[in-house]
Amino acid sequence: MEPIVAYSLVLSAVLFTMGVLAVLARRNPIIMFMGIELMLNAANLAFIAFSRHLDKLDGQVIALIFMAVAAAEVAIGLAIIVSIYRYRRDVDVDAVNVLRG
C-alpha cells in the first residue's frame, strides 16, 4: 500500500480514538459532541484514503454524503442541547436522566 495511505489510516485510527476519549472522559455535552464530530471526520479520512488506494471515486462520494449527514446531526444535537439548557440552566449529561419535557 502506498505510504501516504497507510499513514493516513493510522492517523484516522488515532483521531477516532481521541474522539472516543472525548465522549468517554468529558461530561460537558458540547465537548462530547465535538468528539463525535472528530470521529466522523476520522471515518471520512479513512474513506478518502481508501478511495486513493483503490483508485475509485466511491470513497470520496461517501465522504461527501457523510459531511451532509454530520451537518444534519449537528443541527439536531445542538437543538437538543439548547432545549436542555433552557429547561435546566445547566447541562450535565449525568444529571439528564429523565426523558420528560
Binding site: E37, N41, Q60, V74, L78, I81
Partner: peptide, 28 residues
C-alpha cells in the same frame, strides 16, 4: 485531503466543518 488527491473534499471540509458547523458550536 489535498494530499490524498481529494481537492473538492478539502474545500468542503473548510467550508462545511471549519465554517458552518464550528460557527454553530461557538454560537451555542
Amino acid at each position: 485531503f489535498l494530499l490524498l488527491s481529494a481537492p473538492v473534499l478539502a474545500a468542503l471540509q473548510v467550508l462545511v466543518y471549519a465554517g458552518a458547523i464550528m460557527v454553530l458550536f461557538l454560537f451555542i
